[in-house]
Amino acid sequence: MFKPVQLFADWLVHGVFGLGRETLAGGAVNFFVFDTIKIFLLLAAIIYAVSVMRTFLPPSRVRDIILKKKRFTAHLWAAGLGIVTPFCTCSAIPLFLGFIQTGIPLGVTFSFLVASPMINEVALVMLFGMFGFKIAALYAASGFVLAVLSGLLIGRLRLEGLLEGFDQTKRVQNAVLGAEMAWSERRAYAKDYTLDILKKVWPYVLIGIGVGAWIHGYVPQDLLARWAGADKWYAVPLATLVGIPLYSNAAGIIPLVSALTEKGVALGTTLAFMMAVTGLSLPEFMILRRVMKTKLLFIFFGIVGAGIMFTGFLFNFVMR
C-alpha cells in the first residue's frame, strides 16, 4: 500500500540528496521521509473518515444508546462508543453530568471515560503506522477490556456518595437537536476537525519520527534490553508513571517508543507506557475534580493505573 511512498523516499534520499543506501545517515533519513509521509497520509484519511462517522453519533445519541442497555452490556456499549466519541478535556464535565443525570450508572460512565481518551484514532493510526496492525489491535483490545473491567469494578464499589455537590436526583431530559446535519456540513465538520488535529500534532509527529529515525539508525541494537527488557520488574510501573504527565502527546511519543522497542524495550512495557500517556491525564484529573471528590478520583486513577500495569506485565510474560 505504501510502495509509492517508499519509492519516493528512496528517490529523494538516495537520488536527490545523494546519501548512500548503506550509510547510517542514508538509512536514518530514508526512514524519516518514508514514515513522515506515511503517517500524515494515514492520519488525514482516518481522522477524516472517523469525523464523518461521528457526525452521526453526537454524544447525546451515544448517551441514549447506552441508557437503553442493561448491566454488563451497558459497559460493553459504553466502552465501544467511547472509542468513537472524541474526548476533549473541556467537554469532560458536561459529558459526565449528561451521563449521570440521565440515569446512567457511575460504573458504566467510567467504562466510557476510560475508553474514550485511551482508544482514540490518533493513537491507533500512530500504532498501526509504526508497529503494524497486530500491535494496534492488541492495544485497542486491551484498552477495551480495561475500560469494561474498571467500570464494572467501580460500579461494584458503590461510590456514588463520592460525587461532588450536584443534584443527582434531578433527571435531565434528553435534549433534542434542532436540525439534522446536511452532508455538506458533515464534510465541512470532518475537514475542520482533521485540519485541527493535524495542526495540533504535526510538530510532535515530526520530532517523534525524527528522534525515532536517529535512534533507529545510530543506537546499537538491544542497548535498552539491559534496563527495560521483559525480565525487569520495575520497567512496567516506571513506564506507567512516566506516561502520566505526557498527556496529549501520543502522536509524538509513539514513533519514539517504536524506536525504543526496536532497541530492546519489551512489548508489554511499551503498551503500558502508551496506555498511561493516553488514558491517565493530569488535566482530566483536575477538571473531573469539579464533579467528584478527590478520593473517587484517586480510586479511578488507581484502578486504571493498576489495570495498565497488569496489562504490561501480562504481555511481557506472554510474549517472552
Binding site: 448517551r63 435534549a175 434542532g178 465538520y189
Partner: peptide, 26 residues
C-alpha cells in the same frame, strides 16, 4: 457547567435559540 448539563448538552460549544438546542460540539 451545571447549567450546561441541565440544558442536556454533552459536548461544548453548543448553541440554543429561544431555549431550543440547535447544535453541540462543533
Amino acid at each position: 457547567y451545571e447549567k450546561i448539563a441541565e440544558a442536556g448538552i454533552m459536548a461544548t460549544p453548543a448553541l440554543a435559540v429561544d431555549g431550543k438546542l440547535m447544535l453541540e460540539g462543533r
